[in-house]
Computed example of a mutant assay.
Amino acid sequence: MKSVQQEVDERSNLTGTNKFELLLFRLGGDEQGNHSELFGINVFKIREIVAMPEITTVAGAPKHVLGVVNLRGQIIQVLDLPAIAGVKPKTGLNIMLVTEFARTTQAFAVESVEEIVRLDWNQVMSAENSAGSGMVTSIARLPEQDGVAGRLAQVLDVETILRTLNPNEERESFDQAVGSKIAIKPGTVVLAADDSVVARALIEQGLEAMGLPFIMTKSGKECWDGLNKIAAAAEAEGRTVYDRVAMVLTDLEMPEMDGFTLTRTIKSNNRFANLPVVIHSSLSGTTNEEHVKNVRADAYVAKFSAEDLSRTLRKVLHG
């Protein structure tokens, strides 16, 4: 039997292999609670899973906010995830998923937790063009279980969910937050990759405020393919990729190829080895920061602060 530390170490090491673990859970189904579909969240975002505690209703709380709980001295907002997804739990809201990402802690109420599955990111396809893609960032193809093949799980875009629930949340002024424009070599761009619709919009606003031209992609694979095309076009003109791309800005969690794999692939290729790469992710903690060093990324910045992003890019681009 593996020790707890062995399991933690093994899980942490997945980030260097384009693999990850997905916590599968159910929210409910139709009006009778039937036809319940599987949903998933990256295990690295889950702090703990607890039986639903007593919730204190908060006066004037936004729609779909159940209230708050006192979890060992920390007051945490609890969101009604089935209601957000437009489904009805058959047996009630029984489980609370406490999550940490994007500098925040919050809890999601769900009907039941199923299992944790280990997947390769190439088993996860973008849900960009599917119905409901506003809150579902990708679709995971799950391994066969009990003779049942072809199972699918919808991977939730939790950042989008939180932003949608707080539409009146005060937004920072990008122009004021990023400071003066950032100058880069004429003719070059920032090549960015993020699978979240909301994250891409925020990144685009930030880069525009910094005065940085950019090309936005939706996955690590799309970014890698795009980088190679740019390099080939530059070389056909007698130039190099450094005449066309100033740096790469990448998320970590992305379908087909994650940000760690993208960064390692770039840095291990002689064609791109000196190209700056900044990892920009809602996943945080010392473990991920250590992996950032292992794949030779030039910097890591947590989502989402335009000021922090600007400070990091300015430092990387200007040495």
Rank of each mutant, 00 (worst) to 15 (best):
S305C: 05
I203T: 15
A127P: 09
F20W: 12
S126H: 15
L212D: 07
N122M: 12
S284I: 05
N228Y: 08
N122F: 15
D9M: 10
K229T: 11
N129Q: 14
L81Y: 06
T99H: 11
Q123E: 14
N269G: 04
L262V: 04
M216C: 11
D80S: 00
V197Y: 02
E128A: 15
L227D: 03
S173Y: 01
T164H: 08
D225P: 00
E290S: 14
S138K: 07
V113T: 15
T91A: 11
E21S: 14
K181R: 06
E7T: 05
D225K: 01
D30W: 08
V50F: 09
R271L: 11
N270D: 15
L79M: 04
E253A: 13
R271G: 13
S284P: 00
N168C: 01
A297I: 01
G92D: 12
M1F: 04
D30S: 06
S180N: 01
D30Y: 02
K293M: 08
R163G: 11
N228Q: 10
T261D: 12
G319V: 10
S180P: 03
F214N: 10
F174L: 07
L162Y: 07
A233T: 10
Y242H: 14
L38H: 02
E172V: 08
P143Q: 13
M52W: 08
P213D: 10
A231F: 02
R72K: 03
Q205V: 09
S196Y: 01
L119K: 12
F272E: 09
S282M: 02
D298Q: 10
G16R: 14
T15L: 13
S112C: 13
G132L: 13
Q74A: 03
M52P: 01
V43Q: 02
P213E: 12
T57W: 03
D9G: 03
E10F: 05
G60P: 06
V248P: 07
I84W: 05
E237L: 13
F101C: 10
V316Y: 06
P186E: 10
R314F: 08
L249C: 12
E170C: 03
N18I: 12
R239A: 12
L227T: 03
D195Y: 06
D308R: 06
D120K: 15
V190F: 04
M247F: 07
S305D: 04
N122T: 14
V50M: 03
E237G: 13
E7C: 00
A246R: 05
V295K: 02
I76A: 02
F25W: 10
V245Q: 08
V292T: 11
